[in-house]
Design a protein around this nucleic acid. Structure first.
Length: 202
DNA sequence: TATGGGATTACCT
DNA sequence: GGTAATCCCATAC
């Protein structure tokens, strides 16, 4: 079943980032259904998190969507090239979001290959830039709802015990400690579609 | 108004 | 492992 506001509008973004592992993310643009199982996420914890776009209450045209109430998406462009998909969580005025970093492709694989070019299945939606491209998501989709027909997340009842969800520091940050090392990245242990290093940091 | 850098990826050696 | 591609926004004049 489709996740709704009772999931997205809670105030525990770290817990939600963990819970999104094993959920199913879909997009449906122009009648083309594409998607797969979420295997890697990162939590960005809002105005106190120095790696977060809203650190120090920063508010610009780019990041305004992060302050919306949970249940919409925040899209932003990194390095001028890559579009990134974030799930907005919590209440209006909060700015915590969850970056979706990788899915295991399941639906519309042909269409995703068409969008991505000829890459191996293992790399089709591995890493946030690749994932957004495979699903047809761009900056112009910023602020669209997860409760409508273009993008949504489903719970299919898959459960993983806590040993299977690995925590690690987030990837690619340039911010100072302590946020640099906060263990706010989560991924499914041993899954071939997780990006980057999968080494366990304890 | 100008400049520097980033939640990355792909392709090179 | 090194680096180019390439755009929005923060910061500095």
């Amino acid at each position: 079943m489709k996740l709704n506001n009772s999931f997205y509008q809670r105030n525990d973004t770290i817990k939600m980032a963990k819970e999104l592992i094993g959920k199913f993310l879909y997009t449906n643009f122009d009648g083309q259904l594409t998607g797969g199982m979420i295997v890697e996420t990162e939590a960005y914890m809002g105005v106190t998190d120095s790696s977060c776009h809203t650190f120090n209450n920063r508010k610009t045209n780019r990041n305004a969507t992060m302050y919306n109430q949970g249940g919409v998406i925040y899209m932003y462009v990194c390095y001028g090239i890559h579009d990134m998909l974030n799930i907005v969580t919590g209440n209006e005025g909060d700015s915590q979001v969850i970056l979706i970093r990788a899915i295991e492709p399941l639906k519309g694989i042909e269409k995703m290959i068409e969008r991505r070019g000829d890459v191996p299945l293992k790399r089709l939606a591995k890493g946030p830039g690749s994932l957004a491209k495979a699903l047809g998501l761009k900056r112009i989709h910023d602020s669209i709802s997860l409760l409508e027909e273009e993008i949504w997340i489903e719970n299919k009842g898959f459960k993983f015990d806590s040993d299977s969800i690995i925590e690690s520091p987030r990837v690619g940050l340039g911010c100072p400690e302590p946020y640099f090392s906060m263990p706010w990245r989560f991924f499914l242990k041993g899954n071939a579609y997780v990006s980057g290093k999968t080494k366990v940091v304890s």
